[in-house]
């Protein structure tokens, strides 16, 4: 995607010359200013689509965090905020060098441009390197996404039987034990049990039936439920809300949660890997763009009269940086 717009920036540079004086001016533009404005507006619009692409994931995050805060509090404890912090600094520095490179391009300082682009590129490598260390560490603990989530080491003392009993090796087993299946099992059993003891005498006299809490909360003691802000009377209402259950008093990052209490932790890692993964792909695309700019800068394509591609590439890199600035606190800090 990013390549496309980059190409468009380039298209400005390589459109066939039709007797125009400036070889960088495409045939369908009147002036360089017009061409530059087009590129700039196009890039900003493209960045808007990128923001919205991530927006969907942020939205998912917001909804699930408000419905299942305990999942996120527990999950964040498994992430290493120091590595995330270093990565944040790496990206911020690379953003600065990128801005500096753009300035150099405008002033016609080729050396500075090459240096700026080079450092920015190295920043990208550093970021991805640290990210891969983090991923490897997560994988080694079995912190995979969704159905593949299979933690092998727990800090909690009672972790062993948890791992054996609940998170069996295969995805199929995980499937069998996970939320919905349980909920139906329990629900049905409850219905039958309820039914068997009271045979109807007259239809009108039958009391409305109680609904059992969703299976996601099974295994928690009543006190613990209240602590987490769960009120049984709200269940049916809550079942209508997205997410299916209520937790009105969200736990804070101080709350210590054990693995038994927190169901669906795999969802935290699903969203974590999706968001950081998609961001990682964007970093790679950004690096490719910077590499391409570097080659063109080596060729001496840019100068005070024509630096549009550097400018647009810089905008893209800043966006990639900006998204990380949001991802870091959302996953590591709060």
């Amino acid at each position: 995607m990013a390549d496309a717009v980059q190409t468009s920036g380039a298209s400005a540079g390589h459109e066939g010359p039709h007797g125009h004086h400036d070889p960088n001016l495409a045939h369908h533009f009147d002036t360089m200013e017009q061409q530059f404005e087009c590129g700039k507006l196009g890039m900003w619009l493209f960045l808007a689509t990128e923001v919205l692409l991530f927006g969907g994931l942020f939205c998912w995050y917001a909804i699930w965090r408000s419905n299942h805060p305990e999942v996120f509090v527990y999950g964040a404890q498994k992430l290493d905020w120091k590595l995330g912090g270093i990565n944040t600094i790496v990206l911020l520095v690379s953003s600065f060098t990128m801005a500096w490179a753009v300035g150099c391009a405008q002033r016609g300082n080729r050396q500075g441009l090459l240096l700026g682009l080079g450092i920015t590129f190295l920043g990208g490598i550093g970021f991805m390197g640290i990210k891969s260390v983090e991923y490897t560490e997560k994988f080694s603990h079995g912190y995979y996404w969704g159905g593949s989530y299979n933690p092998t080491h727990h800090e909690e003392g009672h972790a062993a039987d948890h791992a054996d009993g609940e998170h069996a090796e295969t995805a199929d087993a995980a499937h069998a034990e996970a939320g919905a299946a349980d909920s139906h099992g329990d629900g049905h059993a409850a219905d039958s049990a309820h039914g068997e003891e009271s045979v109807a005498d007259s239809a009108g006299e039958l009391a409305p039936q109680e609904v059992r809490p969703p299976a996601a909360l099974a295994g928690l003691s009543a006190e613990r439920l209240t602590e987490l802000g769960y009120e049984p009377s709200k269940v049916l209402l809550a079942a209508e809300a997205p997410g299916g259950l209520a937790a009105s008093a969200p736990p804070t990052s101080e709350t210590k949660l054990s693995a038994e209490e927190v169901r669906n932790v795999h969802l935290f890692f699903s969203i974590y890997f999706c968001m950081t993964g998609l961001h990682g792909i964007h970093v790679l695309i950004g690096m490719a763009v910077i590499g391409w700019l570097f080659v063109r800068a080596l060729r001496g394509d840019f100068g005070p009269g024509y630096f549009e591609p550097v400018d647009l590439g810089g905008l893209y890199w800043h966006l990639v940086d900006l998204i990380w600035i949001y991802l870091f606190p959302l996953f590591y800090l709060i």
């Binding site: 049905h188 039958s192 309820h194 039914g195 068997e196 009271s198 109807a200 239809a203 039958l206 409305p208």
Partner: peptide, 20 residues
């Protein structure tokens, strides 16, 4: 209201009355 439980699955309905 008189409550009847409904279980839907591919491709059948099951209506469960209070007496089971």
């Amino acid at each position: 209201a008189y409550v009847i439980n409904v279980n839907a699955q591919q491709w059948s309905w099951a209506f469960t009355y209070p007496n089971g």
